[in-house]
Amino acid sequence: MEATLSVIGGRWKGVVLFHLLKGKKRFGELRRHLPNCTQRMLTLQLRELEEDGLVKRTVFPEIPPRVEYELTPFGRSVEPILVGMRDWGEKYKARL
């Protein structure tokens, strides 16, 4: 449990990973999905996920530079956990 939470724990990592389940996203797209997350925090979370091998960052040599984020095969392995967390959260909200 501790190892899992050390990688996907925190306020934004799970949400970022969940949005990347649907496919590649540019930084701006992720920002729109996370309006309460600051640009700095999103950058830090993405860097940590990249360092842990869950997210792949691709930089295209264009002006202005274009950057895309996507899940690695290892990152895809957390899909059942993320879907389970979403399902539990929906049940919890319905209970309130």
Rank of each mutant, 00 (worst) to 15 (best):
G84Q: 05
V78H: 02
R95W: 15
K25E: 10
G75E: 01
V55Y: 04
Y69D: 08
V7E: 13
V67Y: 12
R11G: 04
G89F: 12
E90Q: 14
F27Y: 15
Q39F: 09
R31I: 06
L82Y: 04
V15R: 15
V55D: 08
D52A: 11
K24E: 15
E29K: 03
R26E: 09
L34N: 14
R11I: 09
T4R: 14
H33I: 09
K91P: 07
G23W: 01
P73A: 10
H33D: 13
P80N: 13
E51Y: 03
Q39A: 09
D87W: 11
H33R: 14
P61N: 13
P80T: 08
E2G: 11
E51V: 00
N36W: 11
E48P: 01
L71N: 04
R47H: 12
A94I: 01
L5D: 00
K25R: 07
T43S: 05
G84D: 06
H19P: 00
T43F: 10
I8C: 06
P61D: 10
V59M: 07
E51S: 13
R11L: 14
D87C: 14
W12I: 10
N36C: 15
K13M: 01
R26N: 00
F27I: 02
V55N: 07
V55P: 00
Q45D: 15
M1G: 03
R57C: 01
T43M: 01
E29M: 05
R26K: 07
P61Q: 12
E68G: 04
F74G: 08
R95M: 07
Y92P: 01
I81Q: 02
S77G: 08
L46G: 07
T43K: 09
V59E: 14
Q45W: 11
I8R: 04
V59F: 03
G23I: 00
E62C: 09
Y92Q: 02
P65F: 01
E29W: 02
H19G: 09
E51H: 07
K93F: 13
V7C: 05
S6H: 12
G89E: 14
K24L: 12
E62G: 00
S77D: 06
Q45T: 12
E90Y: 10
S6P: 05
E79T: 01
P61T: 13
W88V: 04
H19I: 02
W88Y: 15
R57P: 03
L42N: 10
L20K: 05
L46V: 05
Y92H: 07
W12R: 04
R95N: 06
I63S: 09
